[in-house]
């Protein structure tokens, strides 16, 4: 397929929220990402998919500034990865990254202190809706509750780019629905949401664009509707057939 593709025809005057050029990442001799180039426009929800080891998390981490590319470049809203890009990117990793001894309200204070775009009222409202006790320590929380808290912290920022790595993987179906509703409600013309997940059927209805990675290369990058029309199937079914294990 064509390596460089811009899906943001409607936002040509503005820089794309993500722009990757000839991006390569090697771990020793192993190729994690192989010379990929693409750009993602504003106001879109983009799903990054692929089997384990296809390079999804590596790509997310490079956009977040946690990995340095071996070659090529990444820009966020026209800014190279650095302090300026970190101010506008809200990243949810698949790992728990908060202090185990912290209380929920301490983590809220931390985010309020470090991110100018953090909306404290929104965070407390979400905590209440998801029944998370603000005085509870993370040490005593279940894995699912910690994931809820991390998602609340990330989604309470009024960022330009939300990078969500497996945001619904460890939570119950009811919370999943709430998270998906939250992601949609955060939609704005000037921001973008990038979601990496294996639970395609749960989120495919909210996706505008889909990027499928295979062995560190782009296999498909198109709008979700175009893919469904072309294959006459749901994205979940296309993915299952494409990567069927025998």
């Amino acid at each position: 397929m064509e390596k460089v593709k811009n899906l943001s025809n409607d936002t040509d005057e503005l820089s794309p929220i993500i722009e990757c050029k000839n991006l390569t990442k090697l771990y020793g001799k192993k190729i994690a990402l192989n010379d990929i180039s693409f750009s993602i426009g504003r106001g879109k929800i983009t799903g990054i998919m692929g089997v384990n080891g296809s390079g999804k998390t590596t790509l997310m981490k490079m956009i977040a500034g946690l990995l340095v590319p071996t070659s090529g470049s990444v820009k966020v809203c026209g800014k190279p990865i650095g302090i300026a890009s970190k101010q506008i990117v809200s990243y949810l990793p698949e790992k728990t990254y908060l202090n185990e001894w912290s209380k929920v309200k301490d983590t809220i204070s931390f985010f309020k202190d470090f991110y100018k775009d953090f909306n404290e009222a929104k965070a407390y409202d979400m905590l209440k809706r998801l029944n998370v006790n603000t005085n509870e320590k993370l040490l005593t929380m279940s894995k699912g509750t910690k994931e809820k808290l991390q998602l609340i912290l990330v989604m309470s920022r009024e960022a330009q780019v939300y990078l969500l790595d497996e945001p619904i993987c460890g939570v119950d179906p009811a919370t999943r629905d709430y998270i998906i509703r939250t992601i949609i409600s955060n939609y704005s013309e000037n921001s973008g949401v990038i979601i990496s997940t294996h639970l395609i059927s749960d989120i495919e209805n909210i996706l505008d664009d889909v990027l499928i990675l295979e062995n560190g290369s782009i296999k498909i990058f198109s709008s979700a509707d175009e893919i469904r029309q072309k294959y006459n199937k749901s994205i979940d079914n296309i993915f299952r057939e494409m990567f069927k294990c025998y």
């Binding site: 946690l66 302090i83 970190k86 990243y91 990793p93 990254y97």
Partner: peptide, 13 residues
């Protein structure tokens, strides 16, 4: 460690 995910995504040098 895992807290690096928080530290290195803070908007600071």
């Amino acid at each position: 460690g895992s807290e690096g995910y928080l530290m290195f995504t803070l908007p600071t040098s």
